[in-house]
Design a binder for these strands. Sequence first.
RNA 1: GGGCGCAUAGCUCAGUGGUAGAGCACUGCCUUCACACGGCAGGGGUCCGUGGUUCGAACCCACGUGCGCCCA
Length: 984
Amino acid sequence: MPLDKSFDHTDAEASIYEAWERDGCFEPSGTGEPFCVVIPPPNVTGSLHMGHALNNTLQDILVRFERMRGKDVLWQVGTDHAGIATQMVVERQLMERQEPSRREMGREAFVERVWQWKEESAGRIQNQLRRLGASVDWSRERFTMDEGLSAAVRKVFVSLYNEGLIYRGKRLVNWDPKFETAISDLEVESREVQGHMWHFKYPLADGKTYEYVEKDEEGNETLRETRDYIAIATTRPETMLGDGAVAVHPSDERYAPIVGALCEIPVGPKEHRRKIPIITDEYPDKDFGSGAVKITGAHDFNDYQVAKRGNIPLYRLMDGQARMRDDGAPYAEASAAAQAIAETSELPGEAEVDAINLVPEEYRGLDRYEARKAVVAQCEAEGSLIRIEDKPIMQPFGDRSGVVIEPMLTDQWFVDAEKLAGPAIEAVREGKTRFVPSNWDKTFYQWMENIEPWCISRQLWWGHRVPVWYGPELIREGTNNRWDGMGGRGQWNGGMVTFAGQSVEEAVSYFEWLYDHSIKAETVDGFEDFRSFNEGNSDYYDENDVRSIAIFQDPDVLDTWFSSALWPFSTLGWPEETSELGRFYPTAVLSTAFDIIFFWVARMMMMGLHFQKEVPFRDVYIHAIVRDEHGQKMSKSKGNVVDPLDWMDKYGTDALRFCLASQATQGRDLNLSEQRVEGYRNFRTKIWNAARFVEMNGASVPEGFDPTALKQPLNRWIAHEATEARAAVTASIEAYRFDDAANAAYRFAWNVYCDWALELAKPILNGEDEAAAAETRATLAWALDRILVLLHPFMPFVTEALWKETGTRDGHLMLARWEAAAVRDEAAAAEMAFVIALVSEVRSVRAEMNVPPSAKLPLIALGADEATHDRLAAQAPAITALARLSGIEEADAPPAGAAQIVVEGRSYALGVAEHIDLAAENARLDKEIGKTRGEIAKAEGKLGNERFVQNAPEAVVAEERERKAKFTAQLEKLEAAKARLAAL
RNA sequence: GGGCGCAUAGCUCAGUGGUAGAGCACUGCCUUCACACGGCAGGGGUCCGUGGUUCGAACCCACGUGCGCCCA
């Protein structure tokens, strides 16, 4: 059945994909060198965006390419449970449907509900990956919360815990007051907003004064006054209540007289105002604000560092919803306690400091912004507000919640990332893992060398529950020799004993061992139940005691990145020692966007090296960010987001994929325009029609076709070009130069095959030499197959469709062989280059002379030598047809009314006769002569420079001489032509 | 303030020491029997600026200008 006029992608794509999947084409072949790629798991809540489309297109290109090269390919697929995002989606759904809230239904029911939602809605992103043509192995699909991966998470947690690499601590974290959980830096988006800088006076204690002096750059005094205060500036006045100190730079002479003095925080009830010390630290910037910074260690990351260095207490002012605290002792009492701390050098324990609530009664329970207004109003009323400055400030927002993130001092679990980072840094330095483009390794080093403890706990319900159980402290730390026999398993946390275990039974067994088997451990729901159960159990354990104790599991879940850090080996079956793990780990390459180098790539490196003793991947390919056609970042608020599915519908998946690949250059963002996608849709149609032409000529590849044994120069040249193209595409994909690879395939298909090979073949196909025609038909069909193979990784659908349409063969193109016989034939290449040059010249003259396309003109070769004569004779049908000639003759001089051209140093006359416009021809020759003279001048300039001849490599000099000779010969011919024209 | 990057045709971008390129857009011609989602031909450049290195710089170095991004 003849092919339709164009490819209808709408139905074809789905059925082709189904056939691949049905026939198991995506599964590893089991033979050949292993080649494994793990997909960056999309969020289970997610849908395909342009970044996914790009990344998965590139991975699919690699994977299809290697599969065709005969490797044993596994592209591991799966989804991520995305803790906060998924929990949010379900909570919102509950709200919309006016169903009981998360807290109302309770943890178990809620988690059940999320699973149910996941089952219902799962499959969206998976089906979108299918539409993209991703050749992932669906039979091995994984989910970060499925049983196997959860076992991996538990095992890793327990191992790290027992090695002392996971610990619980009170540290400053990004706190989302809407979701009431810690979130990662990744989930925080810094945005510039219009804010204010408030300048306040902090009066010096005990009426102390000092000479405040400001100097200009030359050291001249510009201001001198006696002050009884120190000025500080802040963007967050509500945090003044928790200040622990005021810091100035040690070299700041303005404040030198008062370093070590106390100043008073100018808010709260006057009789209970706290006095805090003025200290020095490198952090304050002398030129920023007043140069003095208030230090609120519990609510600012910089202040936290200063506080840690200076032993400044950390006073937490807010609750989980970022309201001012409303717990603990009355303000007067708390303030006195804090004052006592400030006046001694002893810093009490974290928990004791944290219990102090320094929020005055009138502010307790207020929202943080209400509190801010109240603080400012009070200072203003009392005259301690100096001024308010309007100022753009960088403010952290939760990317899911959209609310302002609060740095908050909370108890969390941390991974000692510093210890794990070392081997990962080393692996990149040694080249065991390579970043492509390589400059990303700098980003990697910079972060890894300054790595902070990784906060892995989240106050959510959806995720891997922290596998730690708390039990009562019935023995004193270090007083029981059983403790020593437990290999460092237990930890002391907040007056309780904790064990990590892969199951509750394991944890129970530790408790029972620790407290002797006469103790029976029972699990209860949480801290409250634990406390009431163990009421009266607070006595320390006595060996003769027999009683029951309660233990409870940590309520938090783990950061989603904790499980995705294990992805390269957990998906291969670890902790089971599967054959896939042995075969496919380390994986070949990981492809991802730069923004998760820290959060994902680095952590996979750390976990992979720690648990597998091997890097998780050899290469890390960092792909571009997709922007709109004007280089703007796609964002909902700008309304310039393009849904890849829309363009797949409109232009077909192949066109979108090819477009993405052709723009995937290294180290530059990708500006995607619809026009360009449309252009590649046209390219797809071009291929389709080339195939249609081949089919209409009844061409197919005969049994035993040997491209190395062709006779026709045209066919030998086609085989030569096909070989060159394959080499170029292969080298480019191997180097992750997807743009070069796509362009090389495009050029061969369109500019070589369609533009020249098919046109040059037509006279032979229609000629009388049946043997030549047959060979040409076979070669065209063979070359078309080569094009389909080369384009397949980029345009899998149309190529597979044509593979099926154009031949009777077994199997799918996607499993066909990439390699083919290598043909190199420089002689044929030279001959065809001559034909193309001659035809192009003739066409050019015809166009410039406005010769009607229908007019057939005679071509006269002037003074042809034998080689030229032979070539012209051999290629006469092709040249005549393509240049629309009436015939080719040979003569020593041109006839009257002829335009003259020079090709490869020889002159030809084109009998334009009545079409000739002498002035136009003269102008044309002048232009040619001008160009040629320019080239000669350039070459002469170089060759005339003695130092060039002396210093440049011989080959370069020789090349330049050749150029000069070539253009000189051409100039002679052109000038001769002009002289002949003048003689007419 | 620290770090990374970009500036080449109208637009989007390749090119990384030796002849300035592609796609799209533009202009002219062509409904020629694969394809008008096409064919043929053509116009279009201070390779951001200034200095330096070099026989030779779009490319290497320095400084400057403009624009991004990341971190603080």
